[in-house]
Amino acid sequence: MASSSSSSSTQVKKITLKAADGKHFEVEEPVAMEMETVKSFFVGNEDAMKDMVVPLLNVSSEHMPAILDFYRNHSEFRKRTPPPPAEEVKAFNEAFLENKSDEQLMEMIMAANFLNTKELLNFLTEAAANRIKNKSVEYVRAFFGIENDFTPEEEARIRAENEWAFDGLDED
């Protein structure tokens, strides 16, 4: 897995992406084209190709390296014959999420949404769903940064109506 990925081929064309905070990232063209938002920037705009910097207004530079890493690895997984063993993909995905806080995960979901890449978006939203599965209402509020706007009476009534749904939740 750690072997050199693209050193053998001739020089790969690079595209420059600009994160929300102004930081530039030089990215191999095929990797950049994994993002529909970048791709559509060039469609019907061929002469823009060369030295154009693509602004990514909703993606902070903090998350760019991880996101690019995801595209690089997953496009390599897709191309490989025979396809990589499921454990290898799983190991990469788990490592990818390991040190991400809930807030970082949310930010990356919004970034993936902006970049319009289904694979990354599905992966991240599935991860978020797994993190809130079987959690208490209070936990889920904190997770999403949501303020409770019900009065105590309203909340108690909704809880009572759906009493059976609260059985078997995890401890926070």
């Binding site: 889920v140 999403f144 759906n162």
Partner: peptide, 29 residues
């Protein structure tokens, strides 16, 4: 009041949860 994400992303995440858990989450907000 969708917190860190927008409505579409909230739908994307929540639609992955089992129905019974969603009942309990009706009192989030």
């Amino acid at each position: 009041n969708f917190g860190f994400v927008n409505r579409d992303m909230a739908i994307n995440v929540l639609s992955r949860l089992p129905t019974k858990l969603l009942l309990g989450l009706k009192c989030v907000c």
